[in-house]
Amino acid sequence: MSLPPVLPAAQCRYDAVALGEVMLRLDPGATRIRAARSFDVWEGGGEYNVARALSRTFGHRTAVLTALVDNEVGRLLESLIMAGGVDPSWIRWRDFDGTGTATRNALNFTERGFGVRGALGVSDRGHSAASQLGPADFDLEELFGVRGVRWLHTGGIFAGLSASASACAGAAMERARAAGAVVSVDLNFRPSLFRGDGGAERARATFHGLAGGADVLVGGFQDFADRLGVHAPDAAAPEAERFAAVAELLMERYPRLRVVASTVRRATSASVNDWGARAYARGGGYAESRVFRDLAIFDRVGGGDGFVAGFAHAVLDGGDLQTALEYGAAHGALAMTTPGDGSMASLAEVRSLAADAGHGESR
């Protein structure tokens, strides 16, 4: 089996860079959005969360490619990004028009859920600065060709914001691969981004482009079927066999793919889940992580991003597929035990939890 090769750290300015929208998350805590009188604030975003965890938990050098409006909310987001250990120097700042009519910073109101009440997100992101990004907004040659990046992460949330954001993701992935960086893509799908006439066709085109540019593709059976049109040949086969079959079909369709990975979540309630992960590497390597049975969930948002960060860390650190899965599953589990999108786990905690699965640490 074959994991993607990783550039030496000494040759690169950054270990990982995330391309995506960073939103201000407003968290009502234990109550509901409709009943809240105060909110905690965090920064978050499906792509950014990976870079933050790689920096704060795993000690890697990371940056975020995004855009913000230059007002007090944008500067609050910048300070939160800096506190997360992520280099903000690649943020593209947009002028504030006084009302946010032309461009604005994105907000995300998020309930954690509890018991029979599921988590709930209410996004307020229309005309956001990040949605207006395009291929010409970043000096990709300077970033990947001169400074050097070992890993680029992006995904379906950012690419789904607009046609220009999708083009921006495509250009960044192409330049990153040409420079030798590993490219990971999370097929996160938000129906709200694809409503209206032509939405289904735009979603298929967007996700096809993402899959075609990825080395590591993260998603589930529904993502592969609904967005990429790839179905398991035998629907009655065991899940492991179906996953391996789908991964092989994806690799036939997208020749650049090296790894297909998926988190596995079975929810008893919003507060109790079984949690694990599986992956298939080109050349026939299938692996499953330890399954965390009846995992107590404090805040499920960011669990999948936590998996990607742990997986990427292990690969960057020279680990094999099994080790990457154990680190990803362990870190994702820990990320869901604390509030907010961002991980509060320590590397020692991740190592300990991953080692409990009976597999060696990455070296």
Results as ranks from 00 to 15, higher is better:
Asn188Val: 07
Arg75Asn: 08
Ala53Phe: 00
Pro28Leu: 09
Leu120Gly: 01
Ala267His: 12
Ala179Phe: 02
Ile81Gly: 05
Arg92Ile: 05
Glu43Val: 14
Asp95Asn: 13
Gly134Thr: 04
Asn49Glu: 05
Pro191Ser: 09
Val350Gln: 08
Gly59Lys: 15
Leu161Gln: 12
Arg92Thr: 10
Ala335Pro: 01
Ser79His: 09
His60Pro: 01
Val230Ile: 03
Ala18Lys: 13
Arg265Leu: 10
Pro191Leu: 04
Val230Asp: 02
Thr57Cys: 07
Leu161Arg: 07
Gly85Met: 06
Leu347Cys: 09
Glu21Phe: 07
Gly170Val: 00
Ala167Gln: 15
Gly306Trp: 12
Gly229Lys: 04
Gly360Cys: 05
His313Glu: 15
Arg351Asp: 04
Asn49Phe: 01
Tyr48Trp: 14
Ser192Trp: 02
Gly319Thr: 10
Val182Phe: 05
Val86Trp: 15
Cys168Met: 12
Val350Cys: 03
Gly100Met: 13
Val6Met: 13
Arg34Leu: 10
Pro88Lys: 11
Leu325Asn: 00
Gly100Ala: 15
Leu120Pro: 04
Glu43Asp: 13
Arg351Gln: 15
Leu210Tyr: 08
Cys12Leu: 07
Ala312Trp: 00
Arg204Gly: 05
Gly84Ala: 12
Asn273Val: 01
Gly126Ala: 06
Asp139Cys: 09
Ala225Gln: 04
Arg13Tyr: 08
Met173Gly: 05
His208Pro: 06
Arg92Glu: 13
Ala270Glu: 02
Ala354Leu: 01
Ala18Asp: 00
Asp27Thr: 03
Gln132Ser: 12
Ala159Ser: 15
Leu120Gln: 04
Ala203Leu: 06
Gly115Lys: 04
Phe96Leu: 12
Phe189Lys: 05
Ala9Pro: 00
Met1Tyr: 08
